[in-house]
């Protein structure tokens, strides 16, 4: 009888821990990666891209590496490309979006962009591309986060 009770308690604790873990995983929110590229010009008038990568999620930093970041012009429209490498051996699901800023640093069509799914198989390198919504864009920000 005593042993049965012990088993019951142990089983209960294990079950509670498991369910709590599932509950947390199901409702947790995740931070992500932000990387920016800004078009500017040097003294000779050549176009240069200032780059900046911010990881505000330690788990994403372990999973993902930003290998390359570039911006080019298609006519007067700015295009951006980022090369991402998975550090994980399993398939990872992310979502990403490009935000665009004008020369004054104001966001264009603020909040209108949508997230796009990104599937990275183990150790895969993949590029993601974005196109500016209009010719005002001179700076972009790539945001990556886990698939909620």
């Amino acid at each position: 009888m005593m042993r049965q009770k012990h088993n019951f308690v142990a089983g209960g604790i294990a079950a509670a821990a498991l369910v709590a873990l599932m509950g947390l995983a199901g409702c947790s929110t995740t931070a992500g990666v932000e990387t920016t590229g800004k078009t500017s010009w040097d003294e000779q008038g050549a176009r240069i891209l200032e780059k900046n990568v911010v990881f505000n999620s330690s788990s994403l930093k372990g999973d993902l590496q930003i290998v390359d970041l570039r911006g080019v012009q298609a006519g007067d429209i700015m295009r951006a490309q980022a090369t991402l490498r998975s550090r994980d051996k399993d398939t990872l699901q992310f979502q990403y979006r490009f935000d665009w800023y004008d020369a004054g640093g104001l966001e264009i069509n603020s909040g209108a962009g949508s997230w796009k799914p990104l599937l990275l198989t183990g150790r895969e390198t993949k590029t993601v591309q974005g196109v500016a919504p209009d010719p005002r864009a001179k700076e972009f920000k790539l945001k990556i986060r886990e698939m909620e």
Binding site: G12, V19, S114, K116, P117, E148
Partner: peptide, 23 residues
């Protein structure tokens, strides 16, 4: 316990992200 845990996540009303990619 499962019912409690689920109850913690279910039946909430909130604004969602109109641009979310979660299928």
């Amino acid at each position: 316990i499962g019912a409690f845990a689920l109850g913690g996540c279910a039946s909430t009303m909130q604004y969602g992200d109109a641009g979310s990619a979660k299928p």
